[in-house]
Amino acid sequence: MQYNFDEIIDRRNTGSVKWHYFDDTIPLWVADMDFKAAKPILKAIEQVTQHGILGYTKPTAALYDSIIQWHSSRYGLLLDKQNILFSPGVVPSLALMMNVFTEVGDAVLVNDPIYTPFMTKVEQNGRTLVTSLLKEVDGKYQLDLADIEAKIIEHKVKLYLLCNPHNPGGRVWTTDEIEALLVLCKKHDVAVVSDEIHQDLTLSGHTFTPFLKLAEAAGYAHNVVSLTSMTKTFNVAGIKGSMIFAKDDALIKKISQRQQLNDEYELNLFAYTVMQSAYENGGEWLAQVLAYIENNIEITLDFLARHLPDIKVMRPEASYLIWLDCSAYAQDDQALYDKLRAAKVELNAGIRYGSEGHLKMRINVACPEALLREGLNRVYAAFSGGFKPKLSL
C-alpha cells in the first residue's frame, strides 16, 4: 500500500493544538505529524465503532503479544507480559517515577537541553532539579560523563532521567555511551528512567539500543525503567496511551502499587485498539513515513545551507525535529521567537528546553513538502526582511 504524504489536510478548527491559529500561520513546532494515520489503524478504530458497544476494556493477550514481538524483533528487547504496565502517557509516567524512586527533596538529574516536562515534573513534585549540560562536539551533543558524576556526588542524586533518542537534539545515544552512563549510575546507586518514545523514529545509519536491555545484562534491572509509546511513532498522540517496561519483579510491583493509588493503570478502548493495530500492521506505514521525513530533513538542511548559512543545524539521528542555532540573527530569545511569529511561521523556542537552548529553535519537518517549503520561505523572510507569497490551504 502506497501512502500519500503530500496530501495537505486542513486541521484548523478541529481543536488541534498545533493548528490553533486564526490566520495562515504555518506551524512547524509541536511534535505531531501532519499526516493521516496508517490505514490499518483507522480501519481498526472503524471496526470498534461499527461494533457499537464501547464498554469497559482490558488489555488482551493479543495486545501483549504485539508489544512483545515489536520490541523483540526490532531491538532485541525480550519482554514478558509481567514486564509491561500501561500508562496514560510518558509525561505522567515521568511524574509517577518521582514517587517510585525518590522522596520529596531528593535530587533528580537531567541533561540540558531536554524536553521541558523533564524539568517541570521534577520541580512540581517537590524534588531538587540538577542539570548537566550536554557538550556539542562536531555538530552533535555528547554526554559529559565527568560532569554527570560530579553532579551525582555533589547533590547525592537519586534518579537520572535519560532521553533516548534525545529531544530536542536528535541524538541516538550509542551503545558505548549508554554503557558508560550505566556503569556510572550503577557505581553510585542512581536509578535510571529512560524515555524512549522516539525509538521507532531512528533514522538511517543509526541504531537504537534500549537502556533496559543493557541494564539487565549488567545486573542493574532492579533500578531501571523504560518508558515508550506508539503515539509518536504512528502519529496518534490524540489517543493517549503509553507503556512502562521493567524487568525486576519487585520494581514492577512497586510501580503497579503506585499506579493503583490514582487508578492510572488503565487505557481506554481506542488506545488498546490502536496500540495493537499499530504494532501488528503499522510497519509498512512507518517505513514510508520515515523515508518521507528523511527527504524533508535533506530539503531543510539544503535550504538553510543555501539561504541562511549562518544558522547552525544539528542533523538529527532520530525523529523529525531539527535543532537550530539562530544566534547569528538575534540576541534575545523572545525577540527571536517574535520575529518568526511575525513572519507567520511558528517553531519551538529553544530556551524552553533549558539554558543550552538560548537563541536556538526546534523545527518540526513532519508535514507535506509544500507546507515545509512555505514554512522555510517564511523563516527566510523573518531573517532576511524579505517576503514570500502565502500558501493557499
Rank of each mutant, 00 (worst) to 15 (best):
G170K: 07
T60S: 14
H206W: 14
V100P: 09
V289S: 07
F208K: 04
L286D: 12
D248G: 03
D24W: 15
L54H: 00
E280Y: 12
K240G: 01
T49C: 00
A107C: 11
Q82G: 04
V157R: 07
E149W: 11
F387H: 15
C185M: 03
T102K: 01
T14V: 01
K344I: 02
I322P: 13
I114G: 04
I26Y: 12
K344W: 11
Q288W: 08
A349N: 13
K213H: 08
C367Y: 01
Y292H: 06
Y220G: 03
L251N: 05
I152R: 06
L181H: 02
V274F: 04
D325P: 11
K388D: 10
R11D: 00
H166D: 14
W29R: 13
Y21N: 06
P113M: 04
G283N: 15
F86D: 01
S194R: 07
V100F: 05
V30Y: 15
D338P: 03
H307M: 03
C326M: 14
S93M: 03
T300Y: 10
V345N: 09
P117G: 04
A146E: 15
A221C: 12
E216I: 04
Y279R: 03
N99T: 08
A271W: 05
K36L: 08
V193N: 04
T25W: 10
S87P: 09
E266S: 09
N235Y: 11
A37M: 03
N377G: 01
H166P: 10
D263R: 15
Q124D: 14
I41K: 05
A382Y: 08
S242A: 13
A37C: 00
L301M: 10
T14F: 01
V100T: 05
A328N: 14
S392K: 14
L182S: 02
Q47I: 02
I8E: 00
I68R: 08
V48S: 00
L304Y: 08
G354M: 03
V122T: 01
N296E: 09
P117I: 02
A221S: 15
H206I: 04
N281S: 15
H166Q: 15
A38L: 00
N262E: 15
S73M: 08
I152G: 08
A61M: 08
M33E: 05
C326I: 05
A62E: 13
E298K: 09
I41C: 05
L134D: 05
D310G: 02
V379R: 02
R171Q: 14
K121A: 00
Q288E: 15
R258A: 14
D147R: 15
